[in-house]
Design a protein around this nucleic acid. Structure first.
Length: 320
DNA sequence: AAGACTCTCAACCGCGACTCT
DNA sequence: TAGAGTCGCGGTTGAGAGTCT
């Protein structure tokens, strides 16, 4: 037995809102507010709409100060950083991310991620793998995330969860350590560098500058014009000219020896066989270097799917 | 020029969480 | 405490616009 419908679907209008309906809803809400009940609101306002539809229309379109389209690079960075921290199945993920972007709605952020941002991220003539979660730790609170003005290095710091520790380095990269189970960069002998931009942050907020054996892949991206671009939400439709597989976080169920169902970040394997993190544009250049060895071990613990570009390897190789 | 294909995003859906009685 | 009603979320759909062939 299913749940009772929220409204009489036979007697409500569906589909796009007309300007008149918008005006009616906006006028009513500006005068009366929601009255704490969206379900009864359309009847009071004289609209033949479902209450949920009214709520959605207001929140996503009519509400004051809503911004549409034209996401900035800074907003891109914030979304990527938060997404990679939260994973794809974090409850309230999109609303939490949207909360960090004034004027943006969760629907906007979600659409933007699914249609544009994933493509930007997935640019690169390298095969990709997806790393699953490192932790069952509670999600980091995002309400206190400081963002650095664009005039400085665009660093976004994610506060530590109770059982996690996170080191942030380069402009976009961080490593999260869960309950001391994985080596950190400081384990490898690197001291944290406290950036001048971090002076108001907690002393736990470390920024690492550069690491031998790890290179910034963003430089590669510019030259990766023959990349395989994937729209995971529409996989299959956009890949007709490529042997690459469309993958997203929900597309794989990876075994984890460390718990958590959420996918956090995405690992790739370069053509050279070195692990990399394409979300954060870092390539572990040298397996043998001290840091890379530690980090590689860190990633290797998770297992990953290795996908080779067409011509190098047919199909998908699991490396669990 | 036109049909096929792709992309975008507003809107809908179902479900878990929450609130109220 | 249980059940009904409602809210708010992520996932998904599909119409229309844009682009390609």
């Amino acid at each position: 037995m299913g749940r009772a419908p929220c409204c009489d679907k036979a007697n409500v209008k569906r589909g796009p809102w007309s300007p008149e309906e918008d005006a009616t809803l906006k006028s009513y809400l500006e005068t009366h507010g929601t009255g704490g009940n969206w379900i009864s609101l359309p009847q009071k306002a004289g609209l033949k709409r479902c209450g949920k539809s009214c709520r959605l229309r207001w929140l996503n379109y009519l509400r004051p100060n809503i911004k549409h389209g034209g996401f900035t690079e800074e907003e891109d960075n914030i979304i990527c950083s938060l997404y990679s921290q939260m994973g794809s199945r974090q409850v309230s993920q999109w609303s939490l991310i949207a909360a960090q972007l004034p004027g943006r709605t969760d629907n906007d952020v979600k659409n933007y991620w699914n249609t544009k941002l994933k493509k930007k991220i997935l640019v690169g003539k390298i095969s990709l793998s997806i790393k699953n979660s490192s932790t069952n730790a509670p999600p980091a609170s995002v309400t206190n995330i400081p963002t650095i003005p664009c005039s400085t290095s665009p660093i976004l710091y994610i506060p530590k969860a109770e059982t996690e520790s996170t080191v942030t380095f380069s402009d976009h990269y961080s490593l999260t350590q869960s309950s001391g189970a994985f080596p950190t960069l400081s384990d490898a002998g690197y001291e944290p560098v406290i950036s001048s931009t971090t002076q108001n942050w907690s002393q736990n907020h470390f920024q690492y500058s550069s690491f031998p054996g790890i290179v910034d892949m963003s430089e590669f991206r510019a030259s990766s014009m023959n990349s395989h671009i994937v729209s995971p939400s529409q996989e299959g439709s956009t890949m007709s000219d490529s042997s690459s597989l469309a993958m997203d976080n929900k597309g794989l169920s990876l075994p984890s020896t460390h718990g958590g169902p959420e996918d956090v970040g995405i690992l790739m394997d370069s053509e050279l066989g070195f692990p990399s993190d394409f979300v954060n544009e870092l390539l572990f250049q040298d397996r043998e270097s001290e840091v890379a060895a530690n980090c590689f071990q860190y990633f290797a613990d998770f297992g990953y799917v290795d996908m080779k570009p067409q011509g190098l390897n047919e199909g998908v190789t699991n490396q669990y």
